[in-house]
Write a protein that binds this DNA or RNA. Structure first.
Lengths: 241, 241
DNA sequence: GAGTGGTCTAGACCACGAG
DNA sequence: TCGTGGTCTAGACCACTCA
């Protein structure tokens, strides 16, 4: 037996998909919707929470519930040969970056494969990609301090300098998981805490085995995915590794 | 200002991590916890919902709330050269499989790169991996009917026959996203609908460009991640593609 | 200040599980 | 049958946004 929450969510979903409520439009207030469906406000709100989790509706405190505009999908391309690339359909993304220095500790030390409490100095680059007002991704990149001059605010510059400074990369490892965002991530990405995020940890190792870059990326689940393409060469096809 | 929900969730989280509530143990009833924290039951339940979303607590209707046992992590290994491999620390996973035949339609047709309403016959293999009573993954694999005899209930057999029948693989594409599970997926995987899942779509193409396998995998976010390792050969390092 | 969503209460009734 | 969680009500009060 379907709950009222699900019934209402289904109905609203249908009205959105048929264009009865259009993208960007404000929904009737929760009180109006509650009386229309003859339910209490908590029940109606739980129905809206479902749509919010699907990325169909955005709640803005003090203003109302809004139908989300169809989102430009972004695709993180993995297994990258050079710099990470963001494939977006003709999107000149804005990017804000912040660079600080810190020391490897705890989780970071493990990522960078150095002893805990290591005195290794790191450059941390935090950046957020935007499309208009909607953030697309949150990235934290850690590079050993000697490989990255800390005064470079532009990501591209860092990539270029890295390519010059460091030995050639030997291996890139990317680990992905799905989870709910932390409060901080939800705030920064302007998503609901009930919307899943794709969490990606990338570790790049050079030919000497040293970790030269560790990156933590958080992508909103409703507008981002990650793509990995493996081409098999003739040699790999005929023989096992 | 932290909400009561968050305060209670933090406290419970702390009590679980310090072993005050032990793994597998039942928590006090929601009514008891509500009176202990002097909140109403809905408020207490919303706090529990947070822990549930983190995979720390499992609710069982009519029995109570239980602290989850530390979960054996499973790692999906991507970019696979041969059959997909599941790296689990010495886990003889049980696997239940169901094989049916159907026709390519809609979403499936797009995946398999054939025209919609194509008469292409498919073999669908649905399987769930288990560890004890807890399901680990839900997979739906689609193979053109002529490549896969439908009467093979054992996955390994299918893999072997496929290796014999089909031309060598040329490319494997894996697309990952994070989202909340559907009601059906939550039921099958025995997870809360508020727990994120990692959704993986894998498409394998042979040297002729034909799609020989499409797989849809759903992994619970609290116990599964996906790992992609890219080794760069000398050639790839020195020259761009 | 008017209208919105955010949070919370103190119950009610139903469905499930175990003895 | 009894205790559990699942759902829902009909309000209350607060915080935020905008005119």
């Amino acid at each position: 037996m379907p709950s009222r929450r699900d019934t209402i969510a289904d109905d609203l979903r249908h009205q959105i998909s048929t264009g009865h409520f259009k993208a960007g439009e404000r929904l009737p207030s929760e009180a109006q919707l509650a009386s229309r469906y003859t339910v209490s406000t908590p029940t109606l709100r739980s129905a809206l929470a479902l749509l919010q989790g699907e990325g169909l509706v955005e709640k803005i405190h003090g203003r109302g519930n809004f139908v989300c505009r169809p989102l430009r999908k972004i695709t993180y391309t993995g297994g990258c040969r050079e710099a990470p690339t963001w494939a977006t359909p003709s999107a000149p993304l804005h990017m804000t970056a912040r660079t600080t220095n810190l020391e490897a500790y705890g989780h970071l030390a493990a990522l960078l494969d150095v002893p805990p409490r290591s005195p290794l100095r790191l450059t941390e680059v935090v950046y957020i990609t935007h499309e208009g007002k909607s953030p697309h991704s949150l990235a934290r990149i850690y590079v050993p301090h000697d490989l990255a001059p800390a005064d470079s605010p532009v990501l591209d510059e860092i990539a270029v300098r890295l390519a010059d400074l460091r030995p050639p990369l030997a291996e890139v490892q990317e680990r992905l998981s799905a989870r709910l965002p932390t409060q901080e991530e939800a705030t920064v990405l302007r998503i609901a805490t009930s919307l899943a995020v794709l969490s990606l940890t990338r570790v790049a190792t050079d030919v000497t085995g040293r970790v030269v870059e560790a990156a933590l990326l958080v992508l909103p689940g409703d507008r981002a995915d990650a793509l990995f393409t493996t081409r098999l060469t003739t040699g790999e096809r005929s023989s096992k590794e």
